[in-house]
Amino acid sequence: MNAARTKAEGQTEVVLLQRVAGGDRDAFAELYRRLQRPLFGYLMKLVRDREMVEDVLNETLMEVWRQAARFEGRSSVNTWVFSIAHHRAVSRLRKKRETALDEEQAAAIEDEGPTPDMKAESSDMSRLLGKLMERLSFEHREILHLAYYQEFSVQEIATALDLPPNTVKTRMFYARQRLRVLLEESGVEGAVA
């Protein structure tokens, strides 16, 4: 089940956020219940360490509480909260790395985890694809997740990540291109278009 939201859900979330801005804890709890699964899934895809994910989620929710009155309705509540989560995750990962790499470089680093047993998996294209998607860089995993699982439009991703829409499309193109290269390297013929 994906996390696509209906128009009615979006309107309800706006009302809840307005109540949160007035200090309503029940509204805050209800907003949490509505957003926690997609947010948690998003952060798990990016950060992958459960303890750190809960820390980032905690920071994100506290920021929602503090900033609720500043939501201006120029995006959906969902997109606004994801934007906060994105920036918090990037910040936390930067601290974790404790390097002088800038954000762009850090985001572009591919996962250094164990390489899947390509030959053993090559008969199962979907499993292989899933493992290779996990090896993509932070920003490539993020764009695939937001488009495919969260079902964000180009504009919603642009808003959440504070990027121009054309950069969103280009980033997705390169993420998919990189996936093709990894498939090719895994012995899947004709993966690179």
């Binding site: 998607m133 695939l144 998919r176």
Partner: peptide
């Protein structure tokens, strides 16, 4: 296929 894998992976 990529989308389906994304959904399955969650």
């Amino acid at each position: 296929r990529e989308r389906q894998v994304s959904l399955d992976g969650m």
